[in-house]
Amino acid sequence: MKLAIVAALPALALGLAACQSEADKQADATEDALEQRADADLAASDGAVVALGMTERQLLDADLVTADGTELGDVEGLRRTGDQAGMEVTGLIVELEDSDPDRYVTVPLNGLTMRHQGNDMDVQTSLTAAELAAMPDVELPTV
């Protein structure tokens, strides 16, 4: 019986993929592109502080939070002048919390600060969830 279940798993996965909506497919493609871009930038950053007193890795591990620590989103990438590693960071690409399908916006560095919460380092903003939701979706560069 176990063999039949294991043999059925690839077919089940294909069936689930076929049921995926166009919005979900686009969200997956966006997330994949952001991850590839972040990996390339991370390899080029060499552990140096790039913005807000944080390294690229710290920024990519950070959440975007309010002053009281409420999570507004996850930092998924960095927006740079010229969009190349080694260039000045001008904003953060943030996946908005509880968006369905996933939405990504660029949050300018102006007004952002580093926030320590225990051992975690996050990025604090004065923007509200509604203000972030009103921002245009990020246009991703080609990878």
Rank of each mutant, 00 (worst) to 15 (best):
L112E: 08
A133L: 02
V138G: 04
M121G: 02
L34I: 04
M87Q: 14
T81P: 03
A85Y: 05
V49S: 04
A129D: 11
A134N: 10
A29K: 15
A51M: 08
A7T: 10
V89W: 07
Q124I: 00
L60P: 11
Q20H: 00
E95I: 01
D120R: 11
L92N: 02
I5E: 00
E56N: 14
A7E: 12
R115W: 03
D137Q: 11
Q36E: 12
G118I: 01
D68P: 06
L140N: 09
T106V: 15
I93T: 11
T106E: 12
E139A: 04
L127Y: 15
D41T: 01
L52V: 00
L72T: 11
V105C: 02
E35N: 15
S45Q: 13
A129H: 10
V89G: 07
R37I: 02
N110E: 14
E97Y: 14
A17G: 12
V49M: 09
A85G: 04
P136S: 00
T142F: 00
A134P: 02
M87N: 14
D39C: 09
D46Y: 03
L92C: 08
L59Y: 05
L140P: 07
D137N: 08
G111I: 02
E56D: 15
V123T: 05
D61Q: 10
D122C: 00
A23P: 05
P10L: 05
Q84I: 11
L96C: 10
D32K: 15
V50N: 03
T81V: 13
D32H: 15
T55F: 03
Q20Y: 02
T30D: 15
D39H: 10
L127G: 01
A134H: 01
A40I: 11
